[in-house]
Design a protein around this nucleic acid. Structure first.
Lengths: 222, 222
DNA sequence: TTAAGTTTCAAACGTCCGTTTCACTCAACA
DNA sequence: TGTTGAGTGAAACGGACGTTTGAAACTTAA
């Protein structure tokens, strides 16, 4: 949640403070007074700069999504081996999901905001998904269908794509469970890179095996 | 969210109504008046029967967890092949996560309550996890370590366990994303059984491959 | 310096919520 | 029949919240 220095006035301070407070307490429990106090601003500032509380929340959410990077050249280069592109996709996605550790001092708030939306999606949540997550998802679909080869059903491809997201996101979403059950689990921050490599191993191993299974059953039928 | 008929009085009606309203609106947005109206009870009923709103919420949450079934004999029978036991574990867990479809008419609320807790865990969340999720998690750990064989590190076993939970839970948690991106995805209810089989295939394939990888590197070193 | 436009401020407004109060009903029992 | 105690009901209390107000402070440009 790092905002460009351009918005360093009251409006920018409000956005930063709102991101923090919304994430910490949730949309309803977060009060305009909380946010303004944290932003060193008057109670009326929110309504002056954003109209109302809901508009401020929408601005925070949109800002959050817009910070996502796009895919790297490696992922897009269709001349490279599909497995290599998948590894690059997973490394970048895990980095995005778990934050840039050093730069970003308030990871976890991000996950909290995300979980809130998943529990009770706001009005323009579908728009944000379409705009910011669909392109990545289509790229993953293209890569996975190549890894799986020509004999895989559309449903199997889709299930594998969703499974890969599940592998990547689970720590971020279910940390309040994982940290209780595995009380010796390393902190998310220090664990991020190892997680990426594990997901790559787990997903690639599964995809290769599934490809072979389906090829076998395909040639057996032929 | 089906409560035993024993609690069919005002207290039971309040519990049922509260589960519905809390899930639909979240703890704070849900009002005592909402709940009481849905339970055909007076506003004072909540405070009379439960003390206050928070106690009612805690009661709902505990009731929700206590409905979980324990592991089947097949999962516990250490004389059976580990892969078979893993499949049984996954089938039961997916059934629990996605509900008993026909009996339970309000799946999704369950996921909403869960997501709310993940975003902002309540006071005795860790107790509930210890009591209701840790045993299952230990069982899975035992099974997975057997599937992976003797040459796998503790960290790898743990990561595989967490990954399996990720595979199983992702649809339930991220449905507001999945349903937007894959607009032709079948409904969760009708999809539950196919999901279980996919997770079994995906996880078992990955685990077998990982086992072979680690065995190879182990014998190479020896 | 003046005037217009923008931003901030303290204070207040109206509403909604959790909770409390107290009178009431009614079944159980002596 | 009279008494008791659990449960219900309508109404109100006190506080917190989002928002509004109108004047003050500041910025900008002629």
């Amino acid at each position: 949640m790092n905002f460009p220095p351009a918005e360093s006035g009251t409006k920018g301070k409000l956005l930063r403070a709102a991101a923090h407070v919304f994430a910490e307490k949730g949309y309803i429990a977060a009060t305009v007074r909380d946010i303004c106090q944290r932003a060193d601003a008057n109670v009326a500032a929110v309504n002056y700069h954003f109209g109302d509380k809901k508009n401020l929340y929408d601005a925070v959410l949109r800002r959050l999504f817009s910070e996502c990077e796009g895919p790297s050249e490696q992922e897009l280069d269709t001349s490279l081996p599909a497995e290599e592109r998948l590894a690059a996709f997973i490394r970048r996605s895990v980095l995005e999901i778990y934050g840039d550790s050093d730069l970003n001092d308030d990871y976890g708030q991000l996950a909290a905001l995300f979980l809130m939306e998943l529990a009770h999606p706001s009005e323009n949540w579908p728009n944000l998904i379409h705009e910011y997550m669909l392109p990545d998802s289509l790229l993953l679909h293209e890569i996975v269908s190549k890894v799986l080869g020509p004999h895989s059903s559309p449903e199997k491809i889709r299930q594998c794509c969703i499974s890969i997201y599940g592998l990547m996101a689970h720590h971020a979403l279910c940390w309040p469970i994982i940290s209780v059950i595995h009380d010796d689990h390393p902190e998310l921050r220090s664990f991020r890179d190892r997680l990426a490599e594990h997901v790559i191993e787990f997903a690639l191993t599964a995809l290769r095996g599934i490809k072979d299974n389906h090829n076998e059953s395909h040639t057996r039928l032929a």
